[in-house]
């Protein structure tokens, strides 16, 4: 059962300098209850695609079904079933969070009593009890983001679209936010489709990642598999003595591609294999060498991104802090 099915969706803008292809034809499916991330740089076409899927923008060509409704013939049906949290949020600065939540319920044709009840529920669920009656302008970035997501969930949508959910949040607020997003899926089975240009966010949240570059999907898989595609792990072995001997015995292992001596030991490039570590330990043991420590590093999504697009992207830990 697919929540989102996208077929050759494109968006072309006319500008002074001719046609600009913001989205050059993307196709993908998202299964019910999946969390899928759209990963790419600014300008890659993430927001444009999201705005098309949420009925805000008419596609130039292509088709999509969202939550069981056809995007081009039944926009109203799509709207009833989806929630959307824009990059900039969407709360009135002067309004209180509670009044925004009630209004949101009313916008989805709940009656006043139901809307009030639902607002209370969401306020509790998203830990907004002490903040709900303050003007939204006084909330911090992370608090407002939680409110934004609560707003997007007011009508219990089947699919929740999040555009850059954690942009410009501090690390603590980000992990809190991620926790909330995971809970939404766990508790309600909601499908979540999010865009991000942070690899760590995609890694932490998503079952599956679509890498978008210049308006096209250039790779699609789980974060694990994408990383595995690179195929190599880095194994670092710390040794007090016998570095030369260790190098000699380990170099004969069939998985080892390259061995380099380091100040405190060895650095090996190794074909990905879950048992390789055990075999290394045994080999060293048989040779009577005792390592101080041994460590495997999987390639990061950043390495994946680089190898696919040949362009760099924001590294985790480099995201702007909330000042």
């Amino acid at each position: 059962m697919h929540s989102v099915q996208v077929q050759d969706l494109t968006k072309t803008y006319k500008t002074k300098n001719g046609l600009v292809e913001a989205v050059a034809g993307v196709s993908f499916d998202v299964a019910q209850g999946e969390i899928v991330g759209f990963l790419g740089q600014n300008g890659a076409g993430k927001t444009t695609t999201l705005r098309m899927l949420t009925t805000l923008l008419k596609p130039t060509s292509g088709s999509a079904r969202v939550a069981g409704h056809d995007l081009s013939t039944d926009a109203q049906g799509v709207r009833r079933k989806i929630g959307y949290v824009a990059q900039s949020g969407g709360t009135s600065p002067a309004a209180s969070g509670r009044s925004e939540l009630v209004l949101q319920g009313r916008l989805y044709q709940m009656n006043q009593a139901d809307a009030v009840r639902r607002a209370d529920q969401l306020i509790q669920e998203f830990d907004l009890e002490d903040l709900a009656d303050r003007p939204t302008v006084t909330l911090s970035g992370g608090q407002r983001r939680r409110l934004d997501i609560a707003l997007g969930l007011t009508h219990r949508p089947d699919v929740l679209f999040l555009d850059e959910p954690s942009a410009a949040l501090d690390p603590q607020s980000r992990s809190l936010l991620w926790e909330h997003v995971r809970k939404v899926r766990e508790n309600y089975g909601t499908t979540v489709f999010l865009s991000t240009h942070y690899l760590d966010e995609a890694d932490a949240l998503c079952d599956r990642v679509l890498i978008i570059d210049k308006g096209r999907v250039v790779a699609e898989d789980s974060p694990e598999n994408l990383k595995a595609q690179l195929g190599y792990d880095i194994v670092t072995i710390e040794l007090a003595t016998d570095a030369d001997r260790a190098e000699a015995v380990l170099a004969q292992h069939p998985a080892v591609q390259e061995v380099k001596a380091q100040a405190q030991g060895l650095r090996l490039t190794v074909e990905h294999n879950d048992r390789v570590l055990l075999q290394f330990l045994r080999t060293l043991d048989e040779a009577g060498i005792e390592p101080l420590s041994i460590q495997v590093e999987r390639p990061t999504l950043d390495d994946v991104f680089l190898s696919i697009t040949n362009r760099s992207i924001n590294l985790p830990g480099q995201q702007p802090m909330n000042v």
Partner: peptide, 17 residues
């Protein structure tokens, strides 16, 4: 204009209103 800038209009446009 401020409502457009704050995304309030867009938020409403995604609803079935």
């Amino acid at each position: 204009i401020p409502d457009m800038r704050a995304g309030v209009i867009e938020r409403m446009r995604v609803t079935p209103i």
